[in-house]
């Protein structure tokens, strides 16, 4: 903790900036850092964007069942979504299914969730994968849950805009990643060593700005207690917030 903040807090701050000024951010399963970022963006924006945490009762205004999120996205009513992957490749393809042969996998992941649809229809999809290694960032994914880019005749108003890892931030455009900034304590050489795909980079790569003390205060005091409902382990480990005991 020599930097005065945790990796997760830096990453949430980076993601909150990527969210920008939008109307509706949705956060799917197993995404505690994006959920932190979305709630932080809402605190900064004084009630905007609307934030939908899929697994939450409190931070979820849908009343027409689990399908409403997807119907909403299909109409363009969701501006930002987050995806991760067991593997992500340099073309922005994500793999949430398995490694090795699909019919006889080496490792099985949970499954594609909504990615095979949301990646196409949500304008700003932010990829996040905290483990930045050649195991996760690969030349070519073994299974395409959702492709980073599509043929010209495929209906595709959405797609990836960035990839956030524990080492750096990449932007994504025209089918390729570009190294945008390297997080404090990490180096471009380290990013090159640990990335399995080719990417573009400027001659001099800036350092990711550290979260301000006001951002950290907001995250710890206002956002963290709201996270505990959906991510009790994360809220406890990162922010030391314990969930109120459930009514029995």
């Amino acid at each position: 903790m020599t930097l005065g903040y945790r990796d997760e807090e830096l990453l949430a701050d980076v993601i909150a900036r990527l969210i920008g000024s939008v109307r509706h951010v949705a956060v799917g399963n197993a995404s505690p850092i994006p959920a932190t970022a979305a709630l932080l963006a809402r605190e900064r924006g004084v009630g905007r964007p609307y934030v939908s945490l899929l697994q939450s009762r409190k931070h979820n205004f849908f009343t027409d069942g689990a399908r409403e999120l997807f119907d909403c996205a299909g109409q363009g009513r969701i501006d930002v979504f987050f995806l991760s992957g067991g593997q992500i490749d340099g073309h922005g393809n994500v793999n949430l299914v398995s490694t090795g042969e699909y019919q006889r996998p080496r490792v099985r992941f949970p499954g594609s969730f909504g990615s095979s649809y949301l990646y196409y229809v949500v304008p700003k999809v932010i990829l996040f994968r905290t483990e930045h290694s050649r195991r996760t960032l690969v030349p070519k994914v073994d299974f395409i849950s959702a492709p980073g880019a599509s043929e010209a005749n495929v209906y595709r108003p959405g797609g990836p805009i960035a990839l956030v890892t524990n080492r750096c931030l990449f932007s994504f455009a025209n089918g390729r990643f570009t190294l945008t900034s390297v997080h404090p304590g990490h180096t471009t050489e380290e990013v090159l060593d640990n990335t399995g795909f080719d990417f573009d980079r400027p001659d001099s790569v800036p350092e990711t700005p550290a979260p301000t003390s006001e951002t950290l205060r907001m995250m710890r005091e206002v956002v963290a207690p709201q996270l505990a409902e959906v991510y009790p382990q994360f809220a406890a480990q990162i922010f030391g917030v314990r969930q109120a005991a459930f009514a029995r």
Binding site: V97, Y102, S116, Y117, V121
Partner: peptide
């Protein structure tokens, strides 16, 4: 009908 899916291995299999 459903949007998305085109070009994915989910559809392929």
């Amino acid at each position: 009908p459903l949007r998305g899916l085109l070009g994915s291995d989910v559809l392929r299999y």
